[in-house]
């Protein structure tokens, strides 16, 4: 019987430390971020300054916007590979509008607000097409969005003939100035891009946690059949999710081309992978139904602060790639520990 009592002691100890492990697991993106900041601050005096944080946050905003859209799709149990291309296409489309559009014999220069709205419509359209392919025609999300990855990129290249629009600042005499406001201006010294990212993150978090739509999304990602039988309009949810992802990608495209004051058709290549990585590091499950905005935002910061930090301390770009990959694998590993452990066999 002595074996029994030691067993008991071991088990008791386990359940005591279990909660600590759980806290570490659940907050892993947060702790990773703290660790990154501490590590780089000790290696470089320039890293931990407000100015540098704001610059890095500006970079993070681009990935973060894509990642929030991606989170919605992943919560639904899908994936959206087209966001990088949509980002590129949106920039090109905005650039094309800023150069003036020929209608008949007149050239129209739409004001910036119209450029923004029309560009967002482009992203929404690509998203809706993705959504309809997935929800109605039952094309696997991976394949459907892989297709639009190519198509959107191709259209961007066709529109510019492979060239880059360099002059996006508009002309006061034409009344279309202000495009660079998105990328260059600051509100209380915070870049506009970061503010847009924050606003969209908060709005999405509210959508997910407080609205019926959010509940529908979690339910249909967790078990589509059960959700449908409980009255969740699963197809509508699916289409909307891809549409929102497309819109987020367009917003990112606008912010990026405004930051660069140029719009190239190859902008955002492979960004979809970074976005997926941010979502996964943030603790979302690729099988759907689990994940939070906060986690995803932290995930985006982890990736952004890590790669910028590596640049600041002068690590080569090749090593950056290796580090990013290692972080992703580690994150997925922790995901499977977290979700594998709580499921009942």
């Amino acid at each position: 019987m002595s074996a029994t009592s030691t067993n008991g002691a071991v088990a008791a100890k386990k359940s005591g430390s279990f909660s600590l492990i759980k806290v570490l697991l659940e907050g892993r993106a947060f702790f990773a971020l703290i660790a990154i900041i501490l590590a780089f601050s000790s290696m470089s005096p320039n890293y931990a300054s407000v100015g540098n944080f704001l610059i890095m946050a500006n970079h993070v905003a681009i990935f973060g916007l894509l990642a929030i859209g991606m989170l919605l799709v992943i919560l639904n149990g899908g994936i959206d590979l087209s966001v990088g291309s949509v980002l590129g296409l949106s920039g090109v489309f905005a650039g094309w509008l800023m150069q003036g559009v020929e209608v008949g014999n007149v050239i129209i220069y739409p004001p910036v607000w119209a450029v923004v709205v029309l560009t967002l419509c482009v992203g929404a359209t690509v998203g809706v097409v993705n959504g309809i392919l997935v929800a109605v025609f039952k094309v696997p999300a991976f394949v459907a969005t892989l297709g639009s990855l190519y198509v959107a990129r191709g259209i961007g290249l066709l529109m510019t003939n492979g060239l880059t629009y360099n002059n996006l600042s508009g002309d006061p005499s034409l009344g279309n100035t202000g495009f660079d406001w998105l990328g260059f201006n600051r509100l209380a010294s915070v870049p506009i891009g970061v503010i847009i990212f924050a606003v969209i993150a908060v709005a999405t978090a509210m959508l997910l946690t407080r609205s019926a739509f959010g509940r529908w999304l979690y339910a249909s990602g967790g078990n589509e059949r059960a959700a449908q039988l409980s009255g969740v309009p699963v197809k509508r949810v699916q289409v909307i999710v891809y549409m929102l992802s497309g819109v987020c990608a367009s917003v990112a495209g606008l912010v990026l081309s405004s930051q660069l004051t140029s719009a190239g058709p190859t902008a955002g290549t492979t960004y979809e992978l970074t976005a997926i990585a941010a979502v996964v590091i943030g603790g979302a499950a690729l099988t759907g139904g689990r994940g939070t905005v906060l986690g995803t935002v932290l995930g985006a910061f982890v990736i952004g602060f890590l790669s910028d930090g590596l640049v600041i301390i002068g690590v080569s770009a090749y090593w950056q790639t290796v580090f990013t990959g290692a972080v992703i694998v580690l994150a997925v590993l922790l995901n499977s520990i977290q979700y594998g452990g709580t499921r009942r066999s």
């Binding site: 609205s211 509940r215 979690y218 967790g222 009255g231 759907g288 139904g289």
Partner: peptide, 25 residues
């Protein structure tokens, strides 16, 4: 059942509209 959700959320899943006020639940 939706296995990724809690007991409470499973119970309320079919009646979300009943406790949605405007935009929010």
């Amino acid at each position: 059942l939706v296995q990724t959700m809690t007991v409470g959320r499973n119970l309320s899943l079919a009646s979300i509209q009943n406790f949605t006020r405007g935009l929010f639940t």
